[in-house]
């Protein structure tokens, strides 16, 4: 029977490098990423090895999926799984081969900008939902429930705003590095 382990984990996109390094460390300890679920990873026990992992945030259309995956596959990157807009890729480490999927700062910055656009887009329905909930339930619902719903949305809004700010700071850092 093959030994597997599931780990629950969340990460901020601005800490992407840390997340990737953690996956590499897991492989060094003999835990190879096998699949990706919502906020969890499944690892398979194997011989410790040197792996490269990369995450790409992509909002490509379904019709573009085949091409997207085939470009990665031909470059040696196997798709391990998907979570939200994230695509997890991995390959055994080989000297002389690129170990990153983004080989210039500009295209990496574009990826982080896609995450911000995604957050702004999903924020639209969140605000809309809040307004509807608030106006239709104010009369019918007990005040306590109303407050809970409101606080929940304030929390979500705060979370999205926080993520956007962290991403903008990260983009600024990348731009400064690109100028060096």
């Amino acid at each position: 029977m093959k030994e597997t382990m599931r780990k629950w984990k969340i990460f901020g996109a601005w800490n992407l490098e840390k997340e990737v390094n953690w996956l590499v460390e897991m492989a060094r300890e003999g835990w190879i990423l096998e699949s990706v679920g919502l906020f969890n990873y499944t690892f398979k026990k194997a011989e410790p090895c040197e792996m490269c992992y990369q995450l790409d945030f992509s909002t490509h259309k379904i019709k573009d999926q085949e091409e997207y995956h085939s470009i990665y596959a031909e470059a040696g990157w196997g798709l391990i799984g998907k979570m939200g807009g994230w695509n997890y890729f991995g390959k055994p480490k080989k000297e002389g081969e690129t170990q990153t999927i983004y080989t210039d700062k500009q295209s990496l910055i574009e990826m982080f900008k896609r995450i911000i656009s995604f957050l702004v887009i999903i924020n639209g329905p969140t605000v809309y939902f809040l307004v509807i909930m608030h106006s239709s339930f104010t009369m019918a619902m007990p005040a306590a429930i109303n407050i809970i719903i409101l606080s929940l949305f304030v929390l979500v809004e705060f979370g999205i705003a926080y993520a956007i700010v962290r991403l903008l700071i990260h983009i600024r850092k990348l731009k400064a590095e690109a100028l060096q």
């Binding site: 997207y68 470009i71 470059a75 983004y102 295209s107 990496l108 574009e110 990826m111």
Partner: peptide, 15 residues
């Protein structure tokens, strides 16, 4: 000397 990563290539093509 220049090896393009698939993320960069795909992003540049689409743009």
């Amino acid at each position: 000397t220049v090896q393009l990563g698939p993320g960069t290539l795909y992003g540049v093509l689409k743009s």
